[in-house]
Amino acid sequence: MLTLQLLVSGLANGCVYGLIALGFVLIYKATEAVNFAQGDFMMLGAFVALAFANDDWAGLSFWIAAPLAMIVMGVFGYLVDMAILRRMFGQSQIAVVILTIALGFVLRFAAGFVFGHEPVSLKSPMAGQEVRFGGLVLGLDEVSIIVVTVALTMLLWLVFARTRLGVAMQAASQNQLAAYYMGIPVKRIHSLTWALSGVVAAIAGILFASKGSIDPSTGLLGIKAFAASVIGGLGSLPGALIGGLIVGLIEPFASYYLAAGYSQIAPYLLLFLVLVFRPHGILAQIHAKKV
């Protein structure tokens, strides 16, 4: 029974990592950029939802607040790309990494300035509810996280594999110049991708904030989520989910079976080992450069 509890809480945590990782992968897959601020996007999404839903702010119904937050974060993502990332066009990947880390600092400060640094939780219909599967009692918040994450991963995968937009996204990343020549509006595709990952971040934020509480530094979770997406294989959507689940599951089990202190190390140790022995993750997509 204990194992099962650890398993479910690990899965739920893992799905949060997976959701943030999905945002990373989305942007990486379509624009070759790595958004280190994705965790902070999630934090921001959660706060925006909170501002719409909680009674000391706008006090709207959760079911209105959640879509609103998703729209706001989508627009935010679009604008971030348009105002900042678009100017980075053609600069090295690492410049983008540093830029987004800096962006994360700014977002964290802005959120702290507006919403304060005390942990707060979102007024959500999921909080505190229970679901019964036979003899099993699970929190509705945890179940909904798992369901939404799996559904979202499949949906995004379908978008990439089946829709015109998805194919255009892949083309834009594989060869920007050739994509231009083929009439693909590469810049707009990039902005749309950022918008999409903003929406995903909002969903992650809403689910995370209904499960527990958030504060501006919650965004640092993004680092763990990034570890997850690298473990799974950057650039692979199912990889993001798998990586997220692995990191999510390692934590509760490591903290239960290992001495205190060692459990924190576990995800990063795994990350390092994966990078050394399987540099491009479990679902690797990288092949050697041709001359």
């Binding site: 202190g261 190390i265 990063y268 540099p279």
Partner: peptide, 28 residues
Amino acid sequence: LPTARLHGIYLAIATLAVSMLVEDVIIL
């Protein structure tokens, strides 16, 4: 030595992991 094969962001991530590890190792 073990990270010689890594490039760009992958190397950055590996070193990031090391930074986190060392922080915890100091406590341990």
